[in-house]
Design a binder for these strands. Structure first.
Lengths: 214, 214
DNA sequence: TACGATCCGCTACGCTACGTAGCGTAGCGG
DNA sequence: CCGCTACGCTACGTAGCGTAGCGGATCGTA
């Protein structure tokens, strides 16, 4: 419940934060982010970070008690950077979130980052909260856009935004992240039609869009 | 296109396989499987396998050109062991596949194995075929059960088995694998009702079950 | 400005694990 | 029985994690 112990321990919460601490952490995280985009998650190395920042390895271990904690912090920070589109056209907001999600999941680097995040939470339940934060950073804007679509009458009334977001995200996550299928915009459109009820197809109330319908 | 080069190279396909080769590979894979269930994927170590089997490290590297290839082979083999229930009650077959999937995804060891498999295919597209095989080993029986349900009139007519399987699996994968939610049997039931049309809810044609419906 | 607390850099380790080279031997199939 | 192949062994080289201990630098504050 208190601040995530593995990724950012021990700031004496009452006092003014020491400048050196903030500087060091920022530098390490920045270098880590760079390494991640350059070489992927497995390229994030404590020793490489010391080379780039000039910050001693021992100092890094004074801030994160393991490499894994550091990596998680870097990923979480990157996840917080996800854009939350908010135009006055909710449907296109939804579409862009879904598209961005697909693209992220197919991109080897972010794909790998997400996979190792899941892996970390498997072995280390302590990190579950960080994981949840990351997920809601993505799911939140989507649910929000769904809510706006409902309010604007562009989705069927009575649709719970959370559920709608889950229904939209799940098939896409499976296709993009699990199966590594290439981006299929038509699939996204059909999925939106189906879940949001934009085009209610009375013939097949529960029918489901495919990328390649025969 | 030829046999997966990273995991099992160079069997001269025409000749009779050398007994020594079969024996060695089987022993290594068996030890690897044991290590995986005992210590998880990251516990699979070439050196530990040599200790357990007496097979030299160099020999192992003659069969798999990297640790990653070996790990993938072990995981793929484990995935092929998934049971495909086939009773005369298709709906309960479906339910047991979905339940088993959820349980597998929540179990730290298999969860981690699956995550690292996805991670491997991110960096190494060469392994995509192995990955696909693994997925169809799970998705196949599910689609089969859906098809039998349709044929038996226990699911709405016209439902494409492949699509039905995807619709059933996706939300469960998201809840179990991505979000690490604990097993929720009621959610599975409601999802089945919804997708298979067991209880067609005319009021909300596209409505979706929740674990916690208010 | 002075001072105590804290943070930081440095050197030097130990440890695990991957992956390779080279050589001699044992077991295989024909 | 013979040639070929697989195997075991020793010995390396490399990378990367994580720790110990010390002295110096820097911060916030009196």
């Amino acid at each position: 419940m208190n601040s995530t112990p593995m990724s950012a321990p021990a700031l004496p919460s009452h006092a003014t934060p020491d400048r050196r601490v903030v500087r060091t952490r920022a530098a390490v995280l920045a270098a880590g982010r760079g390494l991640m985009t350059e070489r992927g998650v497995r390229g994030i190395t404590v020793e490489e970070i010391t080379k780039r920042t000039g910050i001693a390895k021992t100092t890094i271990y004074r801030h994160w008690k393991s490499r894994e904690g550091l990596v998680l912090a870097i990923i979480a920070e990157a996840g917080a950077e996800i854009p939350a589109p908010h135009t006055n056209v909710p449907l296109s907001d939804i579409r862009s979130v879904l598209t961005a999600t697909w693209e992220a999941m197919v991109d080897p680097i972010r794909r790998s980052a997400f996979a190792s995040m899941i892996d970390s939470t498997a072995a280390n339940p302590e990190l579950a909260s960080l994981h949840r934060e990351f997920l809601s950073a993505v799911g939140g804007p989507l649910a929000d856009a769904v809510a706006r679509a409902v309010a604007a009458g562009q989705a069927r009334a009575g649709l719970d935004p959370e559920i709608g977001a889950e229904l939209l995200a799940a098939p896409i996550v499976v296709r993009a992240f699990i199966r590594a299928d290439p981006l299929d915009r038509r699939y996204i459109d059909r999925l939106m039609d189906e879940v949001l009820g934009t085009r209610p197809r009375s013939e097949h109330p529960n029918s489901v869009p495919t990328g390649a319908r025969s």
